[in-house]
């Protein structure tokens, strides 16, 4: 079980808990504004872009080459950018804090 905090662009905080699936799916289920997950999680639409809180960055890890390519031409990219469809709930650290990019 992982507890994840999402902070939206209008500074709303949503705390969601999940045991499986992707972080994008968890966000969509909890109606986190700015995370749409249009493509269902195949790394095609970039509508699930988040900034990982710096403290958790090493635990979450860097994006793969393909994910990184998709992020390259997205708006609001930072050195802590990830596509949340590529993060698995059971693999991310408990207490993770994510800022929604959109």
């Amino acid at each position: 079980m992982a507890k994840i905090t999402f902070i939206t662009s209008n500074n709303e905080t949503i705390i969601a808990e999940g045991t499986s699936g992707s972080v994008m799916e968890l966000a969509v289920k909890n109606k986190v504004k700015g995370i749409d997950g249009d493509c269902g999680g195949v790394c095609s639409c970039a509508t699930c872009h988040v900034h990982v809180n710096e403290e958790f960055w090493s635990a979450v890890g860097k994006p793969s080459e393909l994910e990184s390519d998709m992020l390259e031409f997205d708006d609001n990219v930072s050195e802590y950018s990830r596509l949340s469809c590529q993060l698995k709930v059971e693999e991310v650290p408990d207490g993770l804090i994510l800022k929604v990019a959109k």
Partner: peptide, 12 residues
Amino acid sequence: RKINPHLAFGFG
């Protein structure tokens, strides 16, 4: 295909 960054719906 799990990672499929296709552009069939355009991009950006």
